[in-house]
Design a protein around this nucleic acid. Structure first.
Lengths: 151, 151
DNA sequence: GAGAGATGCGTGCCTTGAGCACGCTTATGA
DNA sequence: TCATAAGCGTGCTCAAGGCACGCATCTCTC
């Protein structure tokens, strides 16, 4: 049976986005980093790594969660020593969430593990195909049905 | 700054797998299909569509959920008329979860919407690149760090 | 400079969802 | 025929999310 490229890609994306696929990958990437780093709390770490210290409300707006939810997740990471709360020097009402050195290390390790896993799976590929795939994937995700755009 | 293909792909995958990305896509694909079809219950529908009628325990094993969890999700879909419970003709203890015609329609519509969205985003691509991307993505997901393999 | 409204955060409360344990029904095998 | 296993529903408990309230601080206007 013939399929169009769109059908084929849609089907493959379905597999990729499946919950079981994601949780397996997440478990693998964060193995041994402590139980505080789970699929709920890791986005807090990586969100802070991306932008530097900021408030729970700000981070919550980005990820679509209530600020109290972010704050409680941050609390678990704080207990694990991966994150600290510091008073905002410019606003004494505000509290900034900031990664500790250990917190940065967790993000670095996790990202490196993903990169390693990807490179392992590309090991047998002709370098030109790997680069072509990287380029096409980047373009697709940037403009595809996943781009934020409208909200 | 130069990046390897692996780094680039890993970074792009990070974006793709982000929760906000997924929930936005899910909302878009299931819009107007009734509130019973959410990100928790849809996998029940698609799981049944994939294999035909089967028990909650069986489906739960596949997706890594307790049978009671699957059964309760199925209950919501049943109330919405998307799914029905039928006695297993071969085992009077067992109950099979089976899609109704409406349930099949929901899965069909959702899949079609994903295909359409993908094809829209490929509209400006040279057909050869689209086909190449489909092929490379399929290969990557099949062998990459996402493949089940070890459990 | 002072007071009113706005903004930021923590905490209590309620709802939802997940999984476990128990009990009942039906299969299976000695 | 009876003991054991297997399947399912339901009650219970726990974790997590969001809302609302209260308090502290900021900002703007007069």
């Amino acid at each position: 049976m013939t399929t169009t490229a769109g059908e084929d890609i849609a089907h493959t994306l379905g597999l990729l986005l499946r919950r079981s696929t994601r949780t397996r990958l997440h478990a693998r990437l964060t193995e041994g980093l402590g139980k505080a780093v789970d699929d709920l709390t890791y986005p807090v770490l990586s969100g802070l790594a991306r932008t530097g210290p900021r408030s729970a409300a700000d981070l919550g707006r980005e990820v679509g969660l209530d600020r109290t939810t972010v704050s409680r997740r941050a609390g678990r990471l704080e207990q694990a020593g991966l994150l600290e709360r510091r008073p905002d020097p410019d606003d004494r009402r505000a509290t900034l969430l900031a990664l500790t050195d250990d917190g940065h290390a967790v993000v670095t390790v996790t990202r490196q593990r993903l990169t390693d896993a990807v490179e392992d799976s590309l090991a047998g590929w002709p370098p030109a195909e790997a680069r072509a795939f990287a380029r096409l994937l980047h373009r697709f995700v940037g403009q595809g049905p996943f781009a934020a755009g409208d909200e």
